[in-house]
Simulated scan of single mutants.
Amino acid sequence: MAATDSVAIVHLQPGDAAAALALSTEAQWNQNEADWRFFLASGIVFGIVERDVGLIATAALLPYAQGNAWISMVLVTASRQRRGLATRLVDACIEEATRQSRTAWLDATPAGAAVYGGLGFTPTGRMLRMRHAAAMATKVPLLAGDFEELVARDGRATGFDRRAMLQELCGRDGSRLVAQGGAIALIRDGRSARHVGPLLADDAASAARLLAAIVQSENVALLTDVNGDDHGFIDNLTASGWSAERPFQRMRFGRSNVTASAPAFAGAGPEYG
């Protein structure tokens, strides 16, 4: 990172991964260094660097196909919050998405949604993060999922292609792509818990059965981000030991240019959509 004054926005580089990870760790987010390295290599990460302090704020824009992009990693260190830094960085992401003729999407916390609404973002749906405590794995056998099936199902659920992102997530050490009875899911490492998603299935019952099998096959805490409007599915998971952790508001900046033709029972995470 080049030294700069307290107000300049800079483009972060792959070597900034450790400093960026310190911000998300301070916020107790689940992203790990592999997430940051992917965003720094494949997206555009804006940052604010304060002289004699270092990196104090970030926001990332991850391009997707069909003229779409995801905004995430909007972070400000605790001592520099409520100074408009996050808004400035999101504005930079919006400007870049507009320059590239892309529709921008994000998953916002309730507090963030109030701010983003004022910037022109439109609510499009709700997500709910759920957690399952660590358990003793019983080694329930799970079939390996087919990557091409994951890409195809994910494309139908989102309305655009995310092959490069999914390939990177699946290729990480510790990642598992599993399938069972009409459902397929990706499980990957996070900083403090394993993340399950995307989870695509023929129906809610198939999705719930695969999640139950995943719980039995893992021995660490699990997180998954489900459709916050699917109350029946949420009730099913709650009865199976999952607990609600935090809601997210999915939002869009710009005209919708996609049509989803299948449901996603869990997303790839608020940083990826």
Rank of each mutant, 00 (worst) to 15 (best):
M1E: 04
V7R: 14
H11T: 13
L12I: 10
A18C: 02
Q28A: 14
N32S: 11
F38S: 01
S42D: 12
V49E: 11
V53T: 13
A57R: 11
G67F: 03
W70G: 00
S72I: 01
A78G: 06
A78D: 04
R80S: 10
R83L: 14
L85Y: 14
V90G: 04
Q100T: 07
R102E: 05
R102M: 12
A108F: 04
T109R: 04
A113R: 08
A113C: 10
P123W: 03
P123Q: 12
G125S: 13
R131Y: 13
H132F: 14
V140D: 13
L150R: 10
D154N: 15
R162C: 05
R162Q: 05
A179E: 15
Q180L: 15
A183E: 09
G190C: 05
A193K: 15
V196S: 05
D203V: 02
A204M: 02
R209T: 07
A212Q: 12
S217H: 11
V220I: 01
L222D: 02
N227W: 09
N227K: 01
D229G: 07
D230I: 06
F233Q: 05
T238Y: 00
R246K: 15
P247K: 09
F248S: 11
R252H: 04
R255G: 05
V258E: 00
A262T: 10
P263H: 09
E271T: 08
